[in-house]
Design a protein around this nucleic acid. Structure first.
Length: 496
RNA sequence: GGCGGCGUAGCCAAGUGGCCUAAGGCGACGGUUUGCAAAACCGUUAUUCGUGAGUUCAAAUCUCACCGCCGCCUCCA
């Protein structure tokens, strides 16, 4: 059975069949770059990273497009508020584009740390103003939009299928009194395609309707079409953008081109922090950099980026995920366990002399790897059930550790296990990496030397049966976050 | 007010009619190992899935009611 994905458009798990055999176009709503990436970004982009990685594992040639929003999203009401980038820029007295540049770099650095593959194309909204103006022109020509006083609005009632994604009817929306009515709009549900800019507005461009800037839904329609075509395979984004953002994208694109927009709509769920909604305007969000360094009052320690990744994979992308210090701690422990096993396995492969001494275990290993692959693919095929996929990796961890107790294994038996870890845990899930730092992360030689010195001292004490002295050394190092482990013939250390 | 979702062990979390006397991880406890630890391995840790009623041969999974939590409807991944 092949890959099935939950399609928000059909409200069903549909068999995934690409439009063009062997090729898949994926568009994911990217970040608005006016602040550091937070836990919500982690869940969202790890989830879609897994989609892309798994599609590639299945052999598809994937084009992954993720935009960078550097203009156009406003602070409060869709058509009345300020540009968020402008607000952030004013605070530090910089040009909005400088803010966009700063946080774009910050975003990629955090996503790299989470081991997300880079999208193939990361188009900027500000770099596609011309195309956005073109699309507005088409919508005006076709009678789906109207111009008022230098601004252009999309007339929602002209698009019969408006609401098909979010399941809202126009009647419902009309009854909702919370939509602030702009006096320029014919109907409250109409949305801006192009907004007239006041003279002091920093971000503005010339257009047939005067100086202005694009509406907040337009960029995704334009850039997905430019790089993936008018109809493409998968559009992903956060659940909170299902309405109105994605609904408006569909309306604009299908009205303009008369062909279906995205075939599959995937929505990932939200994160909470200690059970509370995390929102940019609520000021309770935790940045990824704070998690990686441990510098947030809600955190008792720092956590590895890949532990955060593992916590995301521990639940399903369509389930909400609650971040808490305890949950992060658990994910870190689990991540460390997998890492230690893979390290141990690789070390054994390196040090094992290549003689076939215990080939009767080869069948056992082969069976295990086969069932691992089968269970893993079954889980991922079922709407990317990473929680089960992760449990399959843990079963392989358990199997491997038990196997490694046998000292008579040949290299040939161990190599396929390592390859399986690298493929499923590495290529697909992204939590097994090619190179692990030898000891503590980022430690310089000085620390290495110092710890080795203490280990030597302790070894001398132990030789003399001075266990109190030996324990004192270990305790002091433990206090500094350095763990000693006595292995046969050597003592190794790592950071907590 | 309208729309949608969730409530599973100490914690995170999968499962959505029979394979469930409910994956997996963390934690805790016991054992093997160790000078003692750590790591690893073995074992224990929900007879029960918010509460109550119903449908069914069969329910964590379907229906209804109630309680609690959350999201969207306004920028947000």
């Amino acid at each position: 059975m092949g890959l099935r994905l939950y399609n928000s458009l059909t409200r069903n798990k549909d068999d995934f069949v690409p439009l063009k055999k062997g090729r898949v176009g994926v568009y994911v709503c990217g970040p608005t770059v006016y602040g550091d990436a937070h836990l919500g970004h982690a869940k969202s982009y790890v989830s879609f990273d897994i989609l892309v990685r798994y599609l590639r594992y299945l052999g598809f040639d994937v084009t992954y497009v993720q935009n960078i929003t550097d203009v156009g999203h406003l602070t409060d009401d869709a058509d009345e508020g300020e540009d968020k980038l402008v607000v952030a820029a004013k605070k530090v007295k910089k040009h909005p584009m400088a803010i966009a540049e700063l946080y774009t770099a910050s975003y990629f650095s955090d996503m790299d740390a989470l081991n997300n593959v880079r999208p193939d194309i990361c188009p900027r909204a500000s770099g596609h103003i011309v195309e956005q103006i073109e699309m507005v022109k088409i919508l005006l020509e076709k009678g789906y939009a109207y111009e008022v006083n230098g601004s252009v609005y999309f007339e929602v009632s002209k698009f019969a299928e408006y609401g098909k994604l979010s399941g809202r009817s126009l009647e419902e929306m009309k009854s909702g009194t919370r939509v602030q009515v702009s006096k320029e709009k014919k109907n409250p549900e109409d949305f801006a395609l192009w907004k007239k800019a006041e003279p002091d507005h920093v971000m503005q461009w010339p257009s047939p309707w005067g100086m202005g800037y694009p509406g907040w839904h337009l960029e995704c329609s334009v850039m997905s079409t430019k790089y993936l075509g008018k109809t493409f395979d998968i559009h992903g984004g956060g659940l909170e953008n299902k309405f109105p953002h994605h609904e408006c994208e569909i309306a604009q694109s299908e009205a303009a081109y008369d062909v279906p927009f995205a075939k599959f709509w995937l929505h990932n769920n939200m994160v909470t922090v200690d059970g509370q909604k995390m929102g940019k305007s609520l000021n309770n969000f935790i940045n990824l950099k704070q998690v990686f360094s441990g510098s947030h009052e809600k955190l008792t320690r720092h956590y590895s980026p890949l532990a955060v990744r593992q916590l995301v994979l521990n639940s399903h992308y369509r389930s909400p995920l609650d971040f808490s210090d305890a949950a992060l701690f658990a994910a870190q422990s689990g991540y460390d366990r997998i890492s230690e096993t893979v390290k141990k396995l690789r070390k054994r492969i390196q040090t094992t002399i290549n003689i076939n001494t215990n080939s009767n275990r080869a069948k056992e290993v082969e069976d295990q790897l086969q069932s691992t692959t089968k269970s893993f693919e079954a889980a991922m095929n079922d709407d990317l059930n990473t929680s089960i996929a992760l449990s399959v990796i843990f079963k392989l961890v358990n199997f491997t550790n038990a196997l490694l107790n046998d000292n008579t294994l040949s290299k040939e038996i161990l190599i396929p296990i390592e390859e399986k870890f690298s493929q499923l845990g590495g290529d697909v899930l992204g939590i097994v990496v090619e190179e692990y730092p030898s000891a503590g992360v980022g430690d310089d030689e000085l620390i290495d030397e110092l710890v080795e010195g203490f280990i030597q001292e302790r070894a001398n004490a132990r030789k003399k049966k001075d266990f109190a002295g030996a324990d004192a050394i270990r305790d002091r190092l433990d206090h500094l976050g350095i763990l000693l482990e006595d292995k046969p013939g050597e003592t190794v250390w790592r950071r907590k």
